[in-house]
Nucleic acid binder design. Structure first.
Length: 655
DNA sequence: GCGTAATCAGCACGCCCATC
DNA sequence: GATGGGCGTGCTGATTACGC
């Protein structure tokens, strides 16, 4: 009897064996996606091996072949297995990453019919349409209601095409790079290299790409926050056209589907993707480039991933036996010991010189102090550009009722709402929604007390202070137009957004309140803040300055002022060794929801492993294990099935 | 007339548990 | 000692309310 091992799409940590029915013999190949019965469910799985021996009796049969494409190869299977073990996750979880999204595969386009009786605005829109235009593209210029009106007026019509991504979405026209002159630039072609360079300077990446293309090899570039590197995306698209392929969970499902099939088919030479792209199968790949997320903000966009992309990149590079280029401004805490030990080569290529200033304020609520205003004033006099980073949207971030002291909060999630400065409009930063509130929800009084400082308040205060030039405020809610921004000399922005400002450069970057950045829930330590400061330097002109202000004196200030960041890292590492934290100890955090406590048996089982090199702290719904031996705890994988337990592993250095 | 935000319906899918 | 549907959620597109 022919059988096959299947990696099923479920939260399980094993492969299952199924019988291949006669009518599928010879049709099923390794890597195909099949439908299989599991318990009483029908689910998808990936064929990993085909054989004829099994110990299991009463095998169930494969139901159907879903996709006859090869979504796995030996290397990618090993990457998945190792990642699964390294982060204590069930192997079945990775199956989702290999099944192409199967959402509606329609392409909606608008076809131009006539321009008779078109209004002025409608004529402008019609001018954008040559013959047909993609719906998404048209909607980036105008709104849906306008488009609907235009259809009603008979100016355009909608054309709906059914896409079959399995067949017709594969791109065709590819460039033949074999005639490209061989590059003579010396470049490390082995092991791990950390290139200390401004991550927004993309010429080094381009150099690696050219070398690989001239050898007819493929290259994978990982950007953990793909969409924030718009400049790089635009650049690669314009130069390499069909030979570059973007893959990210943030993409529209249709685009992602097309990218997926193209990557599987082995067509694009350059693959740019998020961490998920590391689990796809690749042939003929020669280099891996990893652009470090320079700030912790990329976690803001997705739910916390269960793996660390940098470590998976290391696993990937070892498995495919290719060089790994990590490009960043500051090495991660995991990478630094590896550089110190000489396992990772360091290429120092950063010549930007900048100055760091620390101003002491009297209390944390003083944002626009005299010192800050005079800095901005002198900058404007010299006709220099200034960027202010301040993480508080709206005008007044804190509003409460004078009558009953109730805080105006989100009706959905109870987070305090921010007053936007516009008519009764409040914004919830957690739900990302606007609410119109006229009166106190509790007592109905309209006597509200507005306090705190938001971005818009700073802007309006500065507008009163200066008459020359205008001030631009940018946040995640405002559409970003780089060309428009370059007109402004004074920009106020949140830290989520500033990195999208490339290639804008500034003479001065001001952080009027260190606490404002440090107190964010995403920032876990001062180390994150230091990395942000290092990263900010890439937005400075040579000899530009970073000015920070706080009532508290922090440990990192002398290190930053003297530009001795390495010393600060050593200092942090010593602290981490003392407290048994990564990169010296694996930290395994097991969380469960409050209404589903851990079974008693688990505590018993865990206490067996307590020793000199392993400490375990327990509470009702969280267990924190600090250990040197991760392999002792593989049994934890099974508890993920029971209840809502989640395991996060903050692991030690891998490279 | 035009644009934005809110809201809703419809859909796919994860999750539940145990598993070939 | 449980069973094959039920429930919740998130995404998307469409519609509606509302403001200028």
């Amino acid at each position: 009897m022919k059988t096959c091992d299947v990696l099923v799409n479920g939260n399980v940590d094993q492969l299952f064996t199924y019988a291949i029915p006669d009518n599928f013999i010879g049709k099923i190949e390794i890597g195909n996606i099949v439908t299989v019965p599991l318990g009483n469910r029908k689910i998808h799985g990936i064929v990993v091996t085909i054989g004829s021996k099994t110990k299991v009796k009463n095998l169930k049969e494969i139901i159907d072949i879903k996709y006859k494409i090869k979504v796995i190869n030996n290397n990618s299977l090993n990457v998945i297995k190792k990642t699964s073990n390294y982060f204590l996750q069930n192997i079945g979880k990775f199956c989702t990453k290999l099944i192409p999204p199967s959402n509606p595969n329609y392409r909606i386009e608008y076809q131009r019919i006539s321009n008779e009786k078109a209004s002025k605005r409608e004529k402008e829109i019609l001018a954008l349409i040559n013959d047909r235009i993609d719906k998404r593209e048209l909607l980036s210029h105008t709104t849906r209601s306008t488009v609907n009106k235009m259809i009603e007026h008979g100016l355009i019509k909608e054309v709906k095409t059914l896409l079959n991504c399995r067949n017709d979405a594969i791109k065709t026209e590819f460039t033949d790079f074999s005639s490209l002159p061989k590059s003579n630039t010396p470049i490390d072609r082995k092991g791990t290299v950390f290139i200390r360079k401004s991550p927004v300077m993309y010429d080094y990446i381009n150099k690696i790409i050219r070398i690989n293309l001239s050898e007819n090899k493929r290259i994978l570039i990982i950007l953990p926050q793909l969409l924030s590197h718009q400049y790089l995306i635009d650049f690669l698209r314009s130069v390499y056209k069909n030979d570059v392929c973007f893959y990210s969970s943030a993409l529209h499902n249709r685009e992602k589907n097309i990218s997926f099939h193209n990557i599987i088919a082995g067509n694009p030479k350059i693959i740019v993707g998020t961490g998920d792209a590391l689990f796809l199968p690749y042939e003929n790949i020669a280099s891996l480039v990893f652009l470090m997320p320079e700030s912790p903000y990329h976690f803001h966009y997705d739910s916390m991933p269960f793996y660390n992309a940098e470590i998976v990149a290391g696993i990937f590079a070892k498995e495919y036996a290719i060089p790994l280029y990590i490009i960043g401004k500051t090495p991660s805490i995991n990478l630094f010991p590896s550089i110190n030990a000489g396992r990772t080569r360091l290429i120092e290529n950063d010549s930007t010189k900048s100055e760091f200033y620390y101003l002491k304020s009297k209390n944390p609520y003083d944002i626009l102090t005299k010192q800050i205003i005079s800095e901005i004033k002198s900058g404007i006099k010299r006709k220099e550009r200034t960027l202010i980073i301040y993480n508080q949207l709206g005008y007044y971030p804190f509003v409460k009722c004078n009558n009953c002291n109730t805080i105006v909060s989100c009706p959905v999630c109870n987070t305090p709402l921010t007053f936007t400065g516009k008519n009764n409009l409040y914004y919830c930063q957690k739900c990302k929604k606007y609410f119109t509130i006229k009166r106190c929800i509790n007592c109905g009084s309209n006597n509200l007390n507005f306090s705190g400082t938001g971005m818009e308040k700073i802007a309006s205060q500065l507008r009163n202070e200066f008459t020359e030039g205008d001030i631009k405020t940018i946040s995640a809610n405002t559409p970003l137009n780089i060309n428009e921004i370059s007109r402004y000399d004074l920009i106020i922005t949140t830290s989520f957004i500033f990195r999208d400002l490339y290639p804008n450069k500034f003479h001065t970057i001001i952080i009027p309140s260190i606490e404002n950045i440090l107190n964010e829930y995403i920032i876990k330590s001062e180390w994150h803040f230091v990395r942000i400061i290092e990263y900010l330097k890439s937005f400075l002109v040579p000899r530009g300055k970073i000015i920070t202000q706080s009532p508290i004196y922090y440990d990192f200030v002398p290190y930053l002022s003297s530009n001795k960041i390495e010393n600060y890292i050593s200092y942090t590492l010593n602290l981490r060794r003392e407290f048994s934290l990564p990169p010296y100890f694996h930290t395994i955090t097991v969380k469960t929801s409050e209404n589903r406590p851990f079974p008693e048996r688990l505590y018993e089982q865990l206490s067996r492993y307590e020793s000199n090199s392993t400490t375990i702290s327990k509470s009702n719904n969280e267990i924190i294990i600090k250990t040197k031996k991760l392999s002792d705890f593989t049994f934890l994988k099974s508890i993920q099935r029971k209840g809502k337990s989640r395991i996060y592993v903050d692991s030690v250095e891998y490279l």
